[in-house]
Design a protein around this nucleic acid. Structure first.
Lengths: 244, 244
DNA sequence: CTATTTAGCGTATCTGATACGCAGTAAGGA
DNA sequence: TCCTTACTGCGTATCAGATACGCTAAATAG
């Protein structure tokens, strides 16, 4: 078993000798999440700051985690709260839409989550619960297990893309809204229409000049693409299960 | 215009006085990319290492870029080579599949690219060229411009998800293949079937015990999800354009 | 009771980003 | 032509962060 997975599931046996610890792994992970949340920035999480938050010395943390990377792995599971139960009595499509919206909302509470490297397949208790929930929503489709995994992995890929893009872009927008509002004008200045004909058409059509509410548009964009994907899933389910 | 966009398009006027620079922005960016490529790790890029590669002192770089963050932005455009011309005489679907495969291949040449924060809308010459190419492939669909953007943004989101997941997972696999090969066994040990019923079914079905070639499976998974998305796009195009 | 294990932490080392200011180079302008 | 100004490169310094090392004290096993 990989050491980080054992850590996530708290499989390490408590030692029998030596002083009673004043610190626990849970304390450390919780403090690290609080530090990240305080600044909404994964970069704010240093061993020194986590230790400070706990009222301990930096080096004490290393008795409990091997490295900062291990701490990040632990955070990648602890930060994403376990899903509430999925809605019952709804079709797979409504369920997956609910799932996608809710996993995004859970991640949105800790935007820095998107910055944690993915170290392996979903293996922590909370990430696994989300994976399980999505799979469960496909139970009534009659898809074989392998196909369910394919559908859910595609969905997760799409959500991860949103996580990567939307949160970075939201941070960029917070920092410099003007850059977004003037994107059309910027493109007019730099993008030669002969080299970028399709972009030029957009610019001419004023697509980038319509400045709505950044968050609303981000959500609409996400949902538009999500529904396209789910349309494809619907056709796939038809082909596999009704075609029999 | 945002300063980083001006930098990407080399809009800064060369100074008229003072010594001739021995360094150029292009030199610095190229060296930074070489450093990242040498270790296949964005973290390897320090100002000191870039300077060393150029045979200059670290602080000389700051005459040309304001900060390391600016250098990363420049790298985010320079590292992704401009697209070759898209195939002609093919339908939009074949084109978008080609596009997706090729942008991934371009990014795959510099895996560390996925680690660069996205600072704003696609605004550098090369990223914009990819955006333009994707839009151009939808020209014959008859979709209005705004809908084309929606379709392409969804596709980019999916690709970015793949970038985030597949590359991280590939790195994880390189480091510790056993963790992946034993994923099923690990789940059997940690995941209580009462709490993770859908996952338990997968485990029982041996889905995670079938260990094929990691890269091949990754590509197949990507393509499976991509085709689902494109199925949804096809239905959307039908609704919008043939329904008229 | 002694030996062993373990927790906390002070000190030290190394790496990396960047501020500051000096010296030298090159052009503008009188 | 000469002086002033702008600019490049870089040495030094400062600060922050990750973590190795080893000491002291606490707690348990035998």
């Amino acid at each position: 078993m990989p050491p980080d997975v054992a850590l996530m599931w708290r499989l390490r046996e408590a030692p029998r000798r030596g002083p009673k610890p004043s610190l626990s792994l849970d304390d450390i992970v919780r403090a690290a999440i609080e530090v990240a949340d305080a600044d909404n920035d994964l970069g704010a999480v240093s061993m020194a700051r986590v230790a400070e938050r706990l009222g301990n010395s930096t080096m004490a943390l290393y008795r409990h985690v091997k490295s900062k990377d291990d701490l990040l792995v632990l955070m990648s599971d602890a930060a994403i709260e376990r899903p509430d139960p999925m809605p019952e009595g709804v079709d797979w499509r409504t369920g997956l839409t609910f799932w996608a919206d809710n996993v995004l909302a859970a991640i949105r509470k800790h935007r820095w989550y998107a910055k944690i490297p993915i170290s392996g397949p979903p293996a922590g208790p909370n990430n696994l619960a989300w994976f399980d929930a999505a799979l469960g929503l496909l139970n009534d489709t009659g898809l074989p297990e392998e196909a369910k995994v394919g559908v859910v992995m595609g969905l997760i890929t799409y959500v991860q893309g949103e996580v990567r893009m939307a949160f970075d872009l939201a941070a960029g927008y917070d920092q410099n809204p003007a850059a977004f509002q003037q994107f059309g004008a910027t493109l007019r200045q730099v993008a030669d229409p002969r080299q970028y004909p399709a972009v030029a058409r957009l610019v001419d059509a004023g697509i980038f000049d319509e400045v709505g509410n950044f968050e609303d548009e981000s959500e609409q964009d996400f949902d538009f693409g999500l529904q396209l994907y789910l349309d494809g899933v619907a056709a796939f389910i038809d082909r596999v299960c009704q075609g029999k």
